[in-house]
Design a protein around this nucleic acid. Structure first.
Lengths: 231, 231
DNA sequence: CGCTATGTTGACCCGCGTCAATGACCGTGG
DNA sequence: CCACGGTCATTGACGCGGGTCAACATAGCG
């Protein structure tokens, strides 16, 4: 992982997780350091002082929590435009690891706090971002609390497609940037089950798997049925 | 459910979920309506326009989501000081129901937005509130994704105790305001399992259940072991 | 008192985890 | 160019934790 000081075109120049409008903010950008993290590198570790906020520029990352006995859980995947480290706590409660080679910008938390105080547009933007993150985390709670393995996988695939091209009516396909173990730890299951369900969906002609990490939606409607969306 | 217009002593006069400092704000209070909701009353229903933000004054509530086939999930319980309805979406994505008789204050979302724009202390307070809520929801993700039934119940009981008296070193006891079915739907299990695990903990002399909804911690240390806290 | 909602307990079963074997892929070195 | 080793995905056999179904107990409440 390398870090060097550099101003960047603009904070939030990419679509944020909330899908909000872009906010150009040279005032924060000047404090950001660009960080390159290779696949599987830990960008921040659980327990470190939460002194920075991180914005994903390219690549993909996973937010990881570990139980003392080694059980692992992934609370979310981060894609370009997403943020990590918006917390009120003094330490990070979870680790951030690169799923693929990644470009990040790291801002001192102080700079962000200043920005939030002085720039009302940015303030509002981050507020919405947090609200959206909360809503999507609650969606995941429902998924883990009440859905079975097929429903989880269906929901996951559709959510990935939605993030790749927001608002698209009929998703065509998605690339799985992460490996099976990551999917399993995100959905609260095992690699074996993830694999089994994927082949089941393939044999039911609902999806196709031309390569291991490319999923083609053959029957997006059937997938949507399967994910047991909220009433 | 009754609603009448009334100014109140102060917004946030009670400890908020984040445990942040109280914020006196007569500017918002004048817009709040007091609402009394009896046990099992639905205060807001999933799908309604999200025009209000709600602050709990007394009682307890559950935030509920339903799947089309009737499966139910509770994403959290609200206690005095907690807020509901901080969302960027136009509709509520979940219902709010009273677990016990409850007093609430309902603020128009516009008032809150004005407050956030004009009062930087309140802005910061709500920002921290959202961050804390996100962190605690992520904790629940780990619980639902990776913990077994005993660990879930242990975590739940300790979390309840912590909310009842924050920072207390050795929790003594908690009152369960909600019924078994609510606990089950919160922890992603069934009433039967909740019941079985409670009697198991009782027979192991880790807790006692002098009445159905009063839990006494006989061995808080053992409970803490059981909850498999993060490494 | 009896009626209904809620909680407990037991017997059985099934979805998914566990364990193990095999196969596909890929980078490395001879 | 191919042999080799490591990582990752798939598939099968089996077992268990917790869900399901049913009976019973208990507690509010008219």
């Amino acid at each position: 992982m390398t870090g060097y000081h550099a101003p960047l075109p603009s904070l939030l120049s990419r679509p944020a997780q909330a899908g909000g409008s872009a906010v150009s903010d040279p005032g924060l950008d000047r404090y950001g350091s660009v960080i390159l993290a290779k696949r599987n590198k830990t960008v921040v570790a659980q327990g470190q002082p939460a002194d920075y906020v991180i914005n994903v520029v390219t690549g993909a990352l996973r937010i990881v929590r570990l139980l003392p006995d080694g059980r692992r859980h992934i609370s979310s995947f981060l894609l370009p435009g997403d943020f990590f480290g918006l917390t009120e706590s003094a330490q990070y409660t979870q680790s951030l690891e690169a799923v693929a080679d990644t470009t990040l910008i790291r801002y001192p938390r102080r700079s962000l706090e200043t920005l939030l105080r002085t720039n009302s547009t940015a303030n509002r933007h981050f507020f919405n971002l947090l609200c959206a993150q909360l809503t999507s985390t609650q969606e995941d709670l429902l998924l883990l609390g009440r859905k079975n393995a097929v429903e989880r996988l269906a929901s996951f695939l559709l959510a990935l497609a939605e993030r790749a091209s927001p608002g698209s009516p009929q998703p065509q396909a998605v690339d799985l940037l992460m490996k099976r173990g990551d999917i399993a730890d995100y959905l609260g299951m095992t690699v074996e089950t993830v694999s089994r369900i994927l082949t089941q969906l393939r044999s039911r002609k609902i999806i196709d798997l031309p390569t291991v990490n490319h999923v083609v939606f053959l029957k997006p409607g059937a997938l949507r049925q399967l994910c047991a969306a909220s009433a």
